[in-house]
């Protein structure tokens, strides 16, 4: 190889190294830009609206009253409902896939959970509207829109997240632990309950937290079924609204820079902070190594 060819190869090597480093830095740049731009717009809210009113007021009647408590309570309630319904089912599904199901059943279930992810969120909302709504409406003799329906739809939507992450965690438990438990005469359920679940607990908790992160940020499906009434839900089946649904429904009707519009950006900033703190919680609290593997 001539010297010139060699030099050009070395130059390419250096060039692409920089390209890859820049790409990686771009990802950090993007997340920082999102935080800066959304917070800058959102925090302007408090030039016109009292911080105290926004966080403690229960009446949302812009442009007069800006109490955002109904949305915050709405977001938290649907998320808790979703994880209460979808969490146990997802964990059971993951245990089934990882430890109980024969290989051919597993071969069916793995792509099936992938397909759950593939169904778009608007389609989940549409199924909720056309299938679940009439059923709930019939049994509660109300309109059917509300907290409970949103919780059910979200519970189904978070299933793939919960299942795939907790299944990975269960599979990562060393085989020797399982074998030791069986050798001591434990049944399969005792092994799952006493050995596998405690050993994979950080992974299982991560799965549940990520499921909740998905639920609290979900917009379209929730907006289609929750009833969108900016008040606290009177009951489990009462209509209410969440941070995401208020943003999607009011953004188009409010001029950019108005107090109401800024308040919507502040809601987005709140959602952003909630999801980022969930990631930090997972990274620095849940997944701290409890035992050093030898």
């Amino acid at each position: 190889m001539s010297n010139r060819q060699l030099n050009s190869q070395l130059a390419y090597d250096k060039l692409f190294r920089y390209i890859f480093i820049i790409s990686a830095v771009m990802v950090s740049f993007v997340i920082f830009s999102i935080i800066i731009f959304v917070s800058k717009q959102g925090l302007q809210t408090f030039q016109d609206i009292s911080f105290w009113e926004f966080h403690t007021g229960t009446i949302w009647n812009p442009p007069v009253q800006f109490g955002a408590v109904p949305f915050i309570v709405g977001s938290v309630s649907v998320t808790l409902l979703a994880i209460a319904l979808g969490g146990p089912l997802g964990l059971a599904g993951a245990i089934f896939m990882a430890k109980v199901a024969p290989p051919w059943v597993r071969e069916i279930m793995r792509p099936a959970t992938d397909l759950f992810v593939g169904i778009p969120s608007v389609v989940y909302g549409w199924v909720g509207l056309t299938v679940f709504l009439p059923i709930i409406s019939k049994y509660t003799s109300g309109p059917g829109f509300g907290l409970f329906l949103a919780g059910v739809i979200l519970a189904i939507m978070i299933l793939p997240t919960v299942i795939s992450i907790s299944e990975d965690a269960l599979r990562a438990v060393p085989k020797s632990l399982e074998a030791g438990s069986y050798a001591l005469g434990a049944t399969r359920w005792q092994t799952i309950y006493r050995v596998l679940i405690p050993a994979s607990l950080p992974g299982l908790v991560t799965a549940l937290i990520l499921g909740m992160a998905r639920a609290i940020g979900e917009t379209m499906a929730v907006a289609m079924v929750i009833g969108n009434s900016p008040q606290l839900a009177g009951s489990l089946f009462g209509p209410t609204a969440t941070l995401t649904t208020e943003i999607i429904l009011s953004m188009g009707q409010t001029p950019f820079g108005s107090p109401w519009n800024n308040a919507l950006f502040y809601m987005a900033f709140t959602l952003l902070m909630i999801s980022l703190s969930m990631i930090l919680l997972i990274k620095f609290v849940v997944n701290r190594r409890l035992v050093n593997e030898q």
Partner: peptide
């Protein structure tokens, strides 16, 4: 570490927030 953390954070940002970011820009 920063790149990894950023990737994980970006993956959990609710899509509506990405939409509003796009709206601003």
């Amino acid at each position: 570490n920063l790149v990894r953390l950023s990737t994980e954070c970006l993956a959990t940002v609710p899509s509506i927030v990405l939409g509003l970011f796009g709206l601003i820009i």
